[in-house]
């Protein structure tokens, strides 16, 4: 969430330097060599971004793509660029929103915990759905994503989003918890996104509360598992030390 002060700072900066401000601090090797260039060509990008404007009215449909192509000045037939049809449109929304997440949110407060940052990131990502006007059509998108042939790509994209969120939240753990963190956040995000499609409350207050309950559950389960493991480790170590003190050569 960009606070008014941050927005003012950005607007005061000379236009040429604004992209630098919006860029999250990143490793140079990552930036230079692992560039996250969008997988879309110019024509595809133009058509799909125009098509997204038709989604609120026409949904995630072939018509939206056709209208988008017309708007962008391409022939109707150019929708053949998208062999997967509406799924390409859904993926375009997902990919651009994932890549745009780092520009939508920044954390000037260094003391903010990783958990709070993750919460803000999830809310910001869901708000992006609302800003793009696709929330009320999102069930159609979820339907397209859940078709058997689209499931692997959808799950991969969900994983990438979850990875991006942990990265932006400043999580640097590279042990076994790398996988459990990404899996649990993916689950929570997917559930919250489904909840959001039916949320009628003002500014998605209910969605935020739903998210908070899921995060709290994760925290409770996570600490229970962590405590149990710690207890078992301690008992094992104590047993070894006791046997050693009795003269057993282990």
């Amino acid at each position: 969430m960009a606070s008014p002060a941050v927005v003012r700072t950005i607007l005061r900066t000379p236009a040429a330097l604004r992209p630098l401000l919006l860029r999250a601090p990143r490793a140079a090797y990552h930036e230079q060599h692992h560039d996250q260039a969008t997988p879309y060509g110019d024509a595809e990008r133009t058509i799909l971004s125009h098509a997204l404007a038709y989604v609120p009215a026409h949904g995630f449909t072939q018509e939206a793509i056709t209208f988008g192509a017309k708007d962008a000045g391409y022939l109707d037939v150019s929708r053949n660029l998208f062999p997967k049809g509406t799924f390409d449109l859904v993926m375009y929304h997902l990919v651009t929103q994932r890549q745009g997440l780092k520009d939508r949110i920044q954390f000037p407060d260094e003391t903010m915990g990783v958990g709070k940052k993750v919460r803000s990131l999830v809310i910001e990502r869901l708000r992006a759905n609302a800003d793009a006007g696709v929330v009320w059509r999102w069930q159609e998108a979820l339907g397209v994503m859940s078709l058997a042939e689209n499931i692997p790509a959808s799950l991969r994209e969900l994983g990438l989003l979850s990875d991006e969120m942990w990265f932006l939240a400043g999580d640097t753990s590279v042990d076994g918890s790398w996988y459990t963190k990404r899996a649990s956040l993916s689950g929570i995000y997917a559930a919250t996104e489904v909840f959001q499609t039916t949320d009628q409350s003002t500014e998605f207050k209910d969605t935020e509360q739903f998210l908070d309950r899921r995060l709290e559950e994760l925290r409770v389960t996570g600490s229970a598992v962590g405590n149990t493991m710690q207890w078992m480790g301690f008992q094992g170590g104590a047993l070894m030390n006791m046997l050693r003190s009795k003269g057993v050569r282990i």
């Binding site: 490793a27 090797y29 990552h30 692992h34 990875d163 990265f167 640097t172 753990s173 590279v174 042990d175 076994g176 790398w178 996988y179």
Partner: peptide
């Protein structure tokens, strides 16, 4: 440190 920096999964 290198894994975290370059976003390589363990």
């Amino acid at each position: 440190g290198l894994l975290a920096k370059h976003r390589i999964r363990p």
